[in-house]
Design a protein around this nucleic acid. Structure first.
Length: 436
DNA sequence: GCGATCAGAT
DNA sequence: CACATCTGATCGC
Protein backbone atom coordinates (compact mmCIF):
# COMPACT_ATOMS: atom_id res chain seq x y z
CA UNK A 1 0.00 0.00 0.00
CA UNK A 2 1.05 3.58 -0.35
CA UNK A 3 2.83 4.84 2.77
CA UNK A 4 0.40 5.40 5.62
CA UNK A 5 -1.64 2.18 5.54
CA UNK A 6 -3.07 1.37 8.96
CA UNK A 7 -1.38 -1.61 10.67
CA UNK A 8 1.31 -1.75 7.96
CA UNK A 9 -1.15 -3.42 5.60
CA UNK A 10 -2.41 -6.11 7.97
CA UNK A 11 -6.13 -6.87 7.85
CA UNK A 12 -6.61 -7.47 11.55
CA UNK A 13 -7.38 -9.76 13.27
CA UNK A 14 -5.85 -11.97 10.58
CA UNK A 15 -2.10 -12.26 10.10
CA UNK A 16 -2.65 -11.39 6.46
CA UNK A 17 -0.92 -8.45 4.81
CA UNK A 18 -2.33 -6.73 1.73
CA UNK A 19 -0.27 -4.77 -0.82
CA UNK A 20 2.68 -4.29 1.54
CA UNK A 21 5.77 -6.42 1.21
CA UNK A 22 8.34 -4.26 2.97
CA UNK A 23 10.11 -5.35 6.12
CA UNK A 24 8.25 -4.61 9.34
CA UNK A 25 9.77 -2.51 12.10
CA UNK A 26 11.79 -4.55 14.60
CA UNK A 27 9.69 -6.03 17.45
CA UNK A 28 6.43 -5.50 15.52
CA UNK A 29 3.79 -7.60 17.37
CA UNK A 30 2.61 -9.74 14.42
CA UNK A 31 4.24 -11.54 11.53
CA UNK A 32 2.48 -12.09 8.20
CA UNK A 33 1.31 -15.62 7.42
CA UNK A 34 -0.05 -14.77 4.00
CA UNK A 35 0.31 -11.91 1.53
CA UNK A 36 -2.37 -10.63 -0.82
CA UNK A 37 -1.82 -8.36 -3.81
CA UNK A 38 -4.80 -6.42 -5.19
CA UNK A 39 -3.13 -4.97 -8.32
CA UNK A 40 0.25 -4.05 -9.74
CA UNK A 41 0.43 -0.23 -9.59
CA UNK A 42 3.82 0.72 -8.21
CA UNK A 43 2.61 1.99 -4.83
CA UNK A 44 0.98 -1.40 -4.15
CA UNK A 45 4.02 -3.57 -4.80
CA UNK A 46 6.46 -1.87 -2.43
CA UNK A 47 8.93 -4.43 -1.12
CA UNK A 48 8.12 -7.02 -3.79
CA UNK A 49 11.11 -6.03 -5.91
CA UNK A 50 13.37 -6.95 -3.01
CA UNK A 51 15.46 -9.98 -3.98
CA UNK A 52 15.18 -11.31 -0.43
CA UNK A 53 11.36 -11.45 -0.48
CA UNK A 54 10.35 -15.10 -0.38
CA UNK A 55 6.71 -15.45 0.69
CA UNK A 56 3.71 -16.68 -1.23
CA UNK A 57 1.61 -13.89 -2.71
CA UNK A 58 -2.03 -14.44 -3.64
CA UNK A 59 -3.21 -12.39 -6.63
CA UNK A 60 -5.31 -12.60 -9.77
CA UNK A 61 -3.95 -14.43 -12.81
CA UNK A 62 -3.85 -11.11 -14.72
CA UNK A 63 -1.88 -9.43 -11.93
CA UNK A 64 0.59 -12.31 -11.97
CA UNK A 65 1.18 -11.94 -15.69
CA UNK A 66 1.52 -8.15 -15.38
CA UNK A 67 3.98 -8.42 -12.51
CA UNK A 68 6.22 -11.01 -14.12
CA UNK A 69 6.41 -8.90 -17.31
CA UNK A 70 6.71 -5.54 -15.56
CA UNK A 71 9.39 -3.26 -17.03
CA UNK A 72 10.12 0.27 -15.79
CA UNK A 73 10.13 3.09 -18.33
CA UNK A 74 13.90 3.60 -18.52
CA UNK A 75 14.55 -0.06 -19.12
CA UNK A 76 11.87 -0.22 -21.81
CA UNK A 77 13.45 2.72 -23.61
CA UNK A 78 16.96 1.28 -23.42
CA UNK A 79 15.75 -2.08 -24.71
CA UNK A 80 13.84 -0.42 -27.55
CA UNK A 81 16.93 1.54 -28.62
CA UNK A 82 19.25 -1.46 -28.36
CA UNK A 83 21.14 -0.16 -25.32
CA UNK A 84 19.85 -3.18 -23.41
CA UNK A 85 20.05 -6.49 -25.21
CA UNK A 86 17.92 -8.29 -22.66
CA UNK A 87 14.66 -7.07 -21.14
CA UNK A 88 14.96 -6.12 -17.46
CA UNK A 89 11.89 -7.34 -15.66
CA UNK A 90 11.53 -5.88 -12.17
CA UNK A 91 9.88 -8.88 -10.56
CA UNK A 92 11.37 -11.80 -12.44
CA UNK A 93 12.97 -13.13 -9.26
CA UNK A 94 9.46 -14.06 -8.03
CA UNK A 95 9.35 -16.89 -10.56
CA UNK A 96 12.49 -18.82 -11.33
CA UNK A 97 12.48 -21.95 -13.48
CA UNK A 98 14.11 -25.08 -12.04
CA UNK A 99 17.73 -25.36 -13.10
CA UNK A 100 19.13 -28.71 -14.18
CA UNK A 101 22.76 -29.54 -14.80
CA UNK A 102 23.88 -31.17 -18.02
CA UNK A 103 23.89 -34.58 -16.34
CA UNK A 104 20.21 -34.17 -15.47
CA UNK A 105 20.67 -33.60 -11.74
CA UNK A 106 18.85 -30.66 -10.22
CA UNK A 107 20.92 -27.55 -9.39
CA UNK A 108 17.89 -25.91 -7.76
CA UNK A 109 14.17 -26.59 -7.87
CA UNK A 110 13.18 -23.08 -8.94
CA UNK A 111 10.30 -21.21 -7.38
CA UNK A 112 7.02 -19.49 -8.14
CA UNK A 113 5.88 -17.21 -5.34
CA UNK A 114 2.83 -15.78 -7.13
CA UNK A 115 -0.21 -17.88 -6.39
CA UNK A 116 -3.05 -16.81 -8.67
CA UNK A 117 -6.63 -17.61 -7.70
CA UNK A 118 -9.50 -17.50 -10.18
CA UNK A 119 -12.01 -14.65 -9.74
CA UNK A 120 -15.23 -15.28 -7.84
CA UNK A 121 -14.00 -18.68 -6.65
CA UNK A 122 -13.70 -19.14 -2.87
CA UNK A 123 -10.27 -20.67 -2.20
CA UNK A 124 -9.03 -22.07 1.10
CA UNK A 125 -5.68 -21.16 2.61
CA UNK A 126 -3.99 -22.64 5.61
CA UNK A 127 -2.34 -19.95 7.71
CA UNK A 128 0.69 -21.81 9.03
CA UNK A 129 -1.42 -24.70 10.25
CA UNK A 130 -3.36 -22.63 12.77
CA UNK A 131 -6.24 -21.12 10.94
CA UNK A 132 -7.98 -21.83 7.67
CA UNK A 133 -9.33 -18.85 5.75
CA UNK A 134 -11.41 -18.73 2.61
CA UNK A 135 -10.32 -16.02 0.20
CA UNK A 136 -12.39 -14.83 -2.72
CA UNK A 137 -11.08 -12.37 -5.32
CA UNK A 138 -13.54 -10.23 -7.27
CA UNK A 139 -13.05 -7.57 -9.94
CA UNK A 140 -12.42 -4.07 -8.56
CA UNK A 141 -13.06 -1.86 -11.62
CA UNK A 142 -9.71 -0.12 -11.17
CA UNK A 143 -7.24 -1.48 -13.71
CA UNK A 144 -6.46 -4.80 -15.43
CA UNK A 145 -5.90 -7.53 -12.87
CA UNK A 146 -7.25 -5.43 -9.98
CA UNK A 147 -9.36 -7.31 -7.44
CA UNK A 148 -10.92 -6.85 -4.04
CA UNK A 149 -10.70 -9.66 -1.50
CA UNK A 150 -13.31 -11.26 0.71
CA UNK A 151 -11.60 -13.03 3.60
CA UNK A 152 -13.68 -15.43 5.69
CA UNK A 153 -12.52 -17.41 8.69
CA UNK A 154 -13.13 -18.21 12.33
CA UNK A 155 -12.26 -14.63 13.30
CA UNK A 156 -14.88 -13.05 11.12
CA UNK A 157 -15.34 -11.77 7.57
CA UNK A 158 -13.46 -8.89 6.04
CA UNK A 159 -13.74 -7.21 2.66
CA UNK A 160 -10.65 -5.43 1.37
CA UNK A 161 -11.50 -3.27 -1.64
CA UNK A 162 -7.93 -2.62 -2.79
CA UNK A 163 -8.21 0.35 -5.14
CA UNK A 164 -11.65 0.38 -6.73
CA UNK A 165 -14.22 2.51 -8.54
CA UNK A 166 -17.64 1.87 -7.00
CA UNK A 167 -19.65 3.63 -9.70
CA UNK A 168 -23.39 2.82 -10.00
CA UNK A 169 -22.97 0.00 -12.55
CA UNK A 170 -20.35 -1.61 -10.28
CA UNK A 171 -22.73 -1.40 -7.32
CA UNK A 172 -25.35 -3.20 -9.40
CA UNK A 173 -22.94 -6.08 -9.98
CA UNK A 174 -22.00 -6.22 -6.30
CA UNK A 175 -25.63 -6.22 -5.22
CA UNK A 176 -26.39 -9.15 -7.53
CA UNK A 177 -23.33 -11.24 -6.70
CA UNK A 178 -24.39 -14.45 -4.91
CA UNK A 179 -20.96 -14.64 -3.23
CA UNK A 180 -21.54 -11.29 -1.51
CA UNK A 181 -25.25 -11.76 -0.94
CA UNK A 182 -24.84 -13.18 2.63
CA UNK A 183 -23.28 -9.88 3.68
CA UNK A 184 -25.72 -7.48 2.03
CA UNK A 185 -27.94 -5.27 4.16
CA UNK A 186 -30.84 -6.32 1.95
CA UNK A 187 -31.31 -10.09 2.03
CA UNK A 188 -28.12 -11.07 3.83
CA UNK A 189 -27.84 -12.88 7.15
CA UNK A 190 -24.25 -12.02 8.09
CA UNK A 191 -22.36 -8.82 8.81
CA UNK A 192 -18.88 -7.97 7.63
CA UNK A 193 -16.59 -7.18 10.54
CA UNK A 194 -14.72 -4.64 8.50
CA UNK A 195 -14.39 -3.14 5.09
CA UNK A 196 -10.87 -1.98 4.31
CA UNK A 197 -11.84 0.86 2.00
CA UNK A 198 -10.10 2.71 -0.85
CA UNK A 199 -10.29 6.25 0.50
CA UNK A 200 -7.85 7.79 -2.00
CA UNK A 201 -10.51 10.21 -3.29
CA UNK A 202 -12.71 10.47 -0.19
CA UNK A 203 -11.79 14.16 0.21
CA UNK A 204 -12.58 15.08 -3.38
CA UNK A 205 -14.94 18.04 -3.57
CA UNK A 206 -16.38 17.04 -6.94
CA UNK A 207 -18.21 13.91 -8.11
CA UNK A 208 -17.05 12.26 -11.32
CA UNK A 209 -19.40 11.02 -14.03
CA UNK A 210 -19.64 7.23 -14.46
CA UNK A 211 -16.82 5.93 -16.66
CA UNK A 212 -19.27 5.28 -19.47
CA UNK A 213 -20.45 8.91 -19.47
CA UNK A 214 -16.83 10.04 -19.60
CA UNK A 215 -15.89 7.84 -22.57
CA UNK A 216 -19.19 8.53 -24.42
CA UNK A 217 -18.47 12.25 -24.20
CA UNK A 218 -14.90 11.76 -25.27
CA UNK A 219 -15.66 9.81 -28.45
CA UNK A 220 -18.44 12.29 -29.27
CA UNK A 221 -15.91 15.15 -29.17
CA UNK A 222 -13.32 13.15 -31.12
CA UNK A 223 -15.95 12.45 -33.80
CA UNK A 224 -16.36 16.21 -34.38
CA UNK A 225 -12.76 16.61 -35.57
CA UNK A 226 -11.88 16.15 -39.25
CA UNK A 227 -11.50 12.45 -40.03
CA UNK A 228 -7.84 13.07 -40.81
CA UNK A 229 -7.04 14.15 -37.23
CA UNK A 230 -4.48 12.12 -35.30
CA UNK A 231 -5.03 11.51 -31.59
CA UNK A 232 -2.57 10.61 -28.83
CA UNK A 233 -4.37 8.94 -25.94
CA UNK A 234 -2.35 9.49 -22.79
CA UNK A 235 -3.05 6.15 -21.10
CA UNK A 236 0.00 6.73 -18.91
CA UNK A 237 -0.74 4.01 -16.38
CA UNK A 238 -2.87 0.84 -16.20
CA UNK A 239 -6.54 1.65 -15.70
CA UNK A 240 -7.28 3.93 -18.63
CA UNK A 241 -8.22 1.08 -20.98
CA UNK A 242 -11.86 2.22 -21.03
CA UNK A 243 -10.76 5.08 -23.30
CA UNK A 244 -9.06 2.69 -25.69
CA UNK A 245 -12.04 0.32 -25.80
CA UNK A 246 -14.51 3.16 -26.35
CA UNK A 247 -12.44 4.76 -29.13
CA UNK A 248 -11.92 1.48 -30.94
CA UNK A 249 -15.62 0.62 -30.70
CA UNK A 250 -16.79 4.06 -31.83
CA UNK A 251 -14.44 4.51 -34.78
CA UNK A 252 -14.02 0.86 -35.74
CA UNK A 253 -10.25 1.39 -35.85
CA UNK A 254 -7.35 -0.14 -34.01
CA UNK A 255 -5.08 1.81 -31.69
CA UNK A 256 -1.31 1.84 -31.95
CA UNK A 257 0.30 0.54 -28.78
CA UNK A 258 3.98 0.20 -27.91
CA UNK A 259 5.76 -3.13 -27.57
CA UNK A 260 5.32 -3.22 -23.77
CA UNK A 261 1.57 -2.46 -23.65
CA UNK A 262 1.01 -4.89 -26.50
CA UNK A 263 2.89 -7.57 -24.58
CA UNK A 264 0.99 -7.03 -21.33
CA UNK A 265 -2.42 -6.83 -23.02
CA UNK A 266 -1.75 -10.07 -24.89
CA UNK A 267 -1.48 -11.93 -21.58
CA UNK A 268 -4.68 -10.56 -20.02
CA UNK A 269 -7.90 -12.51 -19.70
CA UNK A 270 -9.73 -9.53 -21.26
CA UNK A 271 -9.11 -10.54 -24.88
CA UNK A 272 -10.90 -7.42 -26.11
CA UNK A 273 -7.84 -5.32 -25.36
CA UNK A 274 -5.37 -7.20 -27.51
CA UNK A 275 -7.95 -7.29 -30.29
CA UNK A 276 -8.24 -3.49 -30.54
CA UNK A 277 -4.56 -2.61 -30.55
CA UNK A 278 -1.99 -2.78 -33.32
CA UNK A 279 1.78 -2.52 -33.38
CA UNK A 280 1.66 -1.03 -36.89
CA UNK A 281 2.06 2.70 -36.19
CA UNK A 282 1.21 3.78 -39.74
CA UNK A 283 -2.09 1.88 -39.87
CA UNK A 284 -4.10 4.15 -37.57
CA UNK A 285 -4.62 7.75 -36.49
CA UNK A 286 -5.18 6.65 -32.88
CA UNK A 287 -2.05 6.25 -30.76
CA UNK A 288 -1.59 5.02 -27.21
CA UNK A 289 2.13 4.36 -27.41
CA UNK A 290 5.00 5.45 -25.08
CA UNK A 291 4.36 9.06 -24.13
CA UNK A 292 8.01 9.92 -23.41
CA UNK A 293 9.43 7.86 -26.26
CA UNK A 294 7.12 8.76 -29.13
CA UNK A 295 6.76 6.55 -32.16
CA UNK A 296 7.97 8.02 -35.48
CA UNK A 297 4.43 8.61 -36.67
CA UNK A 298 3.49 10.74 -33.64
CA UNK A 299 6.88 12.46 -33.81
CA UNK A 300 6.44 13.22 -37.52
CA UNK A 301 3.02 14.82 -37.05
CA UNK A 302 4.32 16.97 -34.22
CA UNK A 303 1.90 19.45 -32.70
CA UNK A 304 -0.92 18.67 -35.11
CA UNK A 305 -1.65 15.62 -32.92
CA UNK A 306 -4.58 16.11 -30.53
CA UNK A 307 -3.77 14.90 -27.01
CA UNK A 308 -6.36 13.10 -24.92
CA UNK A 309 -5.73 13.34 -21.18
CA UNK A 310 -7.54 11.65 -18.30
CA UNK A 311 -8.25 14.28 -15.61
CA UNK A 312 -9.98 14.46 -12.21
CA UNK A 313 -13.00 16.48 -13.30
CA UNK A 314 -16.51 16.44 -11.82
CA UNK A 315 -19.83 15.72 -13.57
CA UNK A 316 -20.98 19.32 -13.77
CA UNK A 317 -17.67 20.60 -15.09
CA UNK A 318 -17.75 17.76 -17.61
CA UNK A 319 -21.14 18.84 -19.03
CA UNK A 320 -19.92 22.42 -19.30
CA UNK A 321 -16.65 21.30 -20.85
CA UNK A 322 -18.49 19.18 -23.42
CA UNK A 323 -20.73 22.10 -24.44
CA UNK A 324 -17.86 24.57 -24.56
CA UNK A 325 -15.64 22.25 -26.59
CA UNK A 326 -18.43 21.39 -29.04
CA UNK A 327 -18.89 25.14 -29.60
CA UNK A 328 -15.19 25.70 -30.10
CA UNK A 329 -15.09 22.91 -32.69
CA UNK A 330 -18.23 24.20 -34.40
CA UNK A 331 -16.71 27.65 -34.83
CA UNK A 332 -13.45 26.23 -36.12
CA UNK A 333 -11.33 27.12 -33.12
CA UNK A 334 -8.16 25.10 -32.74
CA UNK A 335 -8.50 22.41 -30.08
CA UNK A 336 -5.11 20.88 -29.24
CA UNK A 337 -6.12 18.60 -26.43
CA UNK A 338 -9.16 16.87 -24.99
CA UNK A 339 -9.89 16.03 -21.38
CA UNK A 340 -11.61 12.89 -20.13
CA UNK A 341 -12.83 12.60 -16.51
CA UNK A 342 -12.03 8.92 -16.11
CA UNK A 343 -11.62 8.24 -12.38
CA UNK A 344 -10.15 5.00 -11.06
CA UNK A 345 -11.11 5.76 -7.46
CA UNK A 346 -14.46 6.49 -5.83
CA UNK A 347 -15.46 9.84 -4.35
CA UNK A 348 -17.16 9.96 -0.95
CA UNK A 349 -20.71 9.67 -2.33
CA UNK A 350 -19.90 6.40 -4.13
CA UNK A 351 -18.06 5.05 -1.10
CA UNK A 352 -21.04 5.85 1.10
CA UNK A 353 -23.42 3.98 -1.23
CA UNK A 354 -21.01 1.04 -1.38
CA UNK A 355 -20.60 0.78 2.41
CA UNK A 356 -24.36 1.09 2.92
CA UNK A 357 -24.86 -2.02 0.75
CA UNK A 358 -23.15 -4.00 3.54
CA UNK A 359 -23.41 -1.92 6.72
CA UNK A 360 -20.30 -3.56 8.21
CA UNK A 361 -19.29 -3.21 11.85
CA UNK A 362 -16.57 -0.80 10.87
CA UNK A 363 -14.57 0.61 8.01
CA UNK A 364 -10.84 1.13 7.90
CA UNK A 365 -9.22 3.45 5.37
CA UNK A 366 -6.66 1.73 3.15
CA UNK A 367 -4.37 4.74 3.32
CA UNK A 368 -3.83 7.66 5.63
CA UNK A 369 -1.87 10.85 5.19
CA UNK A 370 1.02 10.54 7.66
CA UNK A 371 1.24 14.31 8.06
CA UNK A 372 -2.30 14.37 9.47
CA UNK A 373 -1.23 12.37 12.54
CA UNK A 374 -4.33 10.11 12.36
CA UNK A 375 -6.75 13.03 12.33
CA UNK A 376 -7.93 11.84 8.88
CA UNK A 377 -8.76 8.45 10.40
CA UNK A 378 -11.00 10.10 12.98
CA UNK A 379 -12.68 12.20 10.29
CA UNK A 380 -13.29 9.19 8.04
CA UNK A 381 -14.65 7.24 10.98
CA UNK A 382 -17.20 9.97 11.58
CA UNK A 383 -18.04 10.37 7.88
CA UNK A 384 -19.09 6.72 7.60
CA UNK A 385 -20.75 6.36 11.00
CA UNK A 386 -24.26 6.32 9.51
CA UNK A 387 -23.25 3.62 6.99
CA UNK A 388 -22.36 1.01 9.63
CA UNK A 389 -24.39 -1.77 11.22
CA UNK A 390 -26.79 -0.76 13.98
CA UNK A 391 -24.62 -2.47 16.55
CA UNK A 392 -21.60 -1.28 14.68
CA UNK A 393 -18.50 -0.36 16.53
CA UNK A 394 -16.68 2.53 15.01
CA UNK A 395 -12.96 2.05 14.62
CA UNK A 396 -12.41 4.35 17.53
CA UNK A 397 -14.68 2.33 19.79
CA UNK A 398 -13.30 -1.06 18.83
CA UNK A 399 -9.68 -0.13 18.58
CA UNK A 400 -8.72 -0.73 22.20
CA UNK A 401 -9.98 -4.33 21.94
CA UNK A 402 -7.85 -7.44 22.26
CA UNK A 403 -6.81 -7.57 18.68
CA UNK A 404 -4.88 -4.34 18.62
CA UNK A 405 -3.87 -4.11 22.26
CA UNK A 406 -0.26 -4.68 21.37
CA UNK A 407 -0.11 -2.38 18.38
CA UNK A 408 2.41 0.44 18.56
CA UNK A 409 0.87 3.68 19.76
CA UNK A 410 1.16 5.33 16.35
CA UNK A 411 -1.13 2.73 14.82
CA UNK A 412 -3.95 3.46 17.21
CA UNK A 413 -6.38 6.22 16.35
CA UNK A 414 -7.90 8.19 19.20
CA UNK A 415 -11.11 10.08 19.85
CA UNK A 416 -10.97 13.61 18.57
CA UNK A 417 -10.88 15.16 22.04
CA UNK A 418 -8.10 12.91 23.27
CA UNK A 419 -6.29 13.37 19.98
CA UNK A 420 -5.31 16.92 20.86
CA UNK A 421 -4.25 15.83 24.33
CA UNK A 422 -2.33 12.85 23.00
CA UNK A 423 -0.45 14.72 20.34
CA UNK A 424 0.20 17.67 22.59
CA UNK A 425 -0.23 20.16 19.78
CA UNK A 426 3.29 19.77 18.41
CA UNK A 427 4.47 21.01 15.05
CA UNK A 428 3.23 17.91 13.17
CA UNK A 429 -0.23 18.28 14.72
CA UNK A 430 -0.46 21.98 13.91
CA UNK A 431 0.29 21.10 10.30
CA UNK A 432 -2.47 18.47 10.48
CA UNK A 433 -5.02 20.97 11.71
CA UNK A 434 -3.94 23.53 9.13
CA UNK A 435 -4.37 20.92 6.36
CA UNK A 436 -7.98 20.27 7.30
C1' DG B 1 29.39 -0.82 -2.44
C1' DC B 2 25.01 -2.33 -2.99
C1' DG B 3 20.25 -3.07 -2.09
C1' DA B 4 16.32 -1.23 0.20
C1' DT B 5 13.64 2.49 1.86
C1' DC B 6 12.37 7.35 2.12
C1' DA B 7 11.45 12.19 0.69
C1' DG B 8 10.36 15.22 -2.77
C1' DA B 9 9.02 16.73 -7.40
C1' DT B 10 6.06 16.23 -11.44
C1' DC C 1 -5.70 18.26 -9.85
C1' DA C 2 -3.93 14.24 -7.67
C1' DC C 3 -2.55 9.73 -8.33
C1' DA C 4 1.28 6.88 -9.87
C1' DT C 5 5.88 7.27 -11.01
C1' DC C 6 10.53 8.58 -11.06
C1' DT C 7 14.75 10.56 -9.09
C1' DG C 8 18.06 11.36 -5.79
C1' DA C 9 19.20 11.04 -0.84
C1' DT C 10 19.77 8.31 3.09
C1' DC C 11 20.07 4.20 5.69
C1' DG C 12 22.18 -0.16 6.93
C1' DC C 13 24.52 -4.48 6.13
Amino acid sequence: MPPGAPYHGFILPYSIRVDEFTCLPPDYPIAPKLHLLTHTHSDHVLGLSSKSFDHTVVCSEDAKQMLLRHEVFNERTMFEHGVRVEKRRTFKHLKVAPLKRKDGTVEHGGRDLLRPIPLRTPTEFNLSGEDVVTITAMGANHCPGAVMYLVQGSQGSILHTGDFRAEPSFLDLVAEDPLLKPFLTQGGNQTLDAIYLDTACVWSSSDPPPKRVATDGLVDLMGRFPTTTYFFINAWTWGYEDMLMAIAAHFGDKIHADRYKHCIYSYLSHEGLSRIITRDMSSTRFHACERFDRCEEVERLGNSVVYVNPVPMGSEDWSQYLDATRDRLKYGEEVKSLLCPLWRHSPFSELQAFVKLFRPHRIIPNTLNPSLANLDWIMIDNMFRDCLSSRGKSIVESIRGDVVRNMPENDVPLQLDSWVEFTGGGEKENVALKNL
